[in-house]
Simulated scan of single mutants.
Amino acid sequence: MNDEDLLAQQFEANRPRLRAVAYRVLGSLAEADDAVQEAWLRLARSDAGEIDNLAGWLTTVVSRVSLDLLRSRASRREDSLDHDQPDWASGAADGLTRMASASAPASASACASPSAYPYPAPPEPEAEVLLADSVGPALQIVLDSLNPSERLAFVLHDVFGLSFEEIGPIVDRSPAAARQLASRARRRVRGGPAEPDVPAHRQREVVAAFLDAARNGRFDTLLSLLDPSVMLRADAVTAAMGAQAEVFGARQVAETFSGRAKAARLAIVDGLAGAVWGKAGAVKVVFAFSLNDGGAIAGIEMLADPAVLAELDIEFL
């Protein structure tokens, strides 16, 4: 087998995963195949001997091509979603995690040299199975509401497990900024409001001031930090611990926290400023803050469900 045939074989082994990445980013099978084909053409034009990690290189290329297609789509104000998805593409959204590590190899007989392989080969059955648990229509609509960088960061991290150090260069952001992109997208996917573009340092300042005012019972300071329509919500586990399920309004929320939260610690929760309360070194409750465009606290979520806490990326400050 010559070098070109070997390269084609290696590409084919990566094709199902690349197609899955592109499809989850773009929501269009035709555009996904275009993105994968572009990756093949770029590989054929490159010096493959200089590529240390072929799978990573191909994932980066497909991701960047997909991002360009998303941005082009947005500029044209077109919706390229495949509304008439095949039956196998309408699975439940909880199949995302199961598919993150799937990679079914294509047969070696399908490979050919770059010069003899100008178009994608028809997907083999294994490749279709790879997409069988794909994004459901409802989640696809949510993904379409995200901006291109948020969407790509979310898919690459939450679905395919790439690190933010890997994602940052793809979206032309720092790892911390890429983390925030994914966090905003995650909130939307979970049904929460979009996070406004409040600088990270301002988020920390507001949450730190809120915790300080709460601990020291400075009621007026708490009021000044809260949006008049702020909503405090507790999940079922937190409510079972004695918290109110919902508290609405700045005065009511301020009364709830004034003189309390003495053991809460400032933290970064999924890339956003938040707070954590723990016991015996274990995180028991996470306080996730949402800020409005003016930098006031518009929402606070108290999360204690162990399954939810296990998915959160928490960095203590």
Rank of each mutant, 00 (worst) to 15 (best):
L211M: 08
R184K: 12
Q180V: 13
A208V: 03
H201P: 02
A213S: 08
R184L: 00
D212A: 12
F210P: 01
R186H: 09
A209V: 08
R204I: 01
A176L: 02
L181P: 11
F210S: 00
R190D: 09
A178Y: 01
E195A: 15
A185Y: 00
G191Q: 15
F210M: 08
A213R: 04
Q180S: 14
A213N: 05
F210R: 06
A213H: 05
H201I: 04
A177T: 10
A214V: 06
S174Q: 07
V189N: 12
A208L: 06
A182D: 05
Q180C: 06
S183Y: 00
R190C: 06
A194L: 14
S174R: 09
A194M: 10
H201V: 09
L181M: 11
V189M: 14
E205R: 11
A178E: 03
A209E: 15
P193W: 05
Q203G: 14
R179P: 02
E195Q: 14
A194I: 03
P196F: 00
L211I: 10
V189G: 12
R202T: 13
A214R: 08
R186W: 02
E205Q: 13
P193K: 09
Q203K: 07
L181T: 11
Q180Y: 07
A200P: 03
E205S: 10
D212I: 04
A213V: 05
A200D: 09
A214L: 05
R204Q: 10
D212L: 08
P196T: 05
R202G: 03
V189W: 01
V198E: 06
A185T: 13
R179E: 10
G192I: 00
A200Q: 09
P196W: 01
P193T: 13
V189L: 13
R204H: 08
H201K: 05
H201W: 02
P196C: 07
R179V: 03
G192C: 03
E195M: 13
A178M: 00
R179T: 08
E205I: 04
G191S: 15
R187K: 14
R190Q: 15
A178D: 05
R202D: 13
A209I: 08
R184M: 03
G192E: 01
A176N: 07
L181K: 11
A200I: 08
A214F: 06
G191L: 11
A200E: 10
R179C: 07
S174E: 09
E205D: 11
R187D: 13
A177S: 14
D197K: 15
D212F: 05
A208Y: 03
A177R: 14
R184S: 14
A213L: 03
A178H: 03
V206H: 01
R204W: 01
V198L: 05
V198T: 11
L181R: 11
A177Y: 06
Q203V: 04
R202V: 13
A214C: 05
P199L: 11
P193Q: 12
S174D: 09
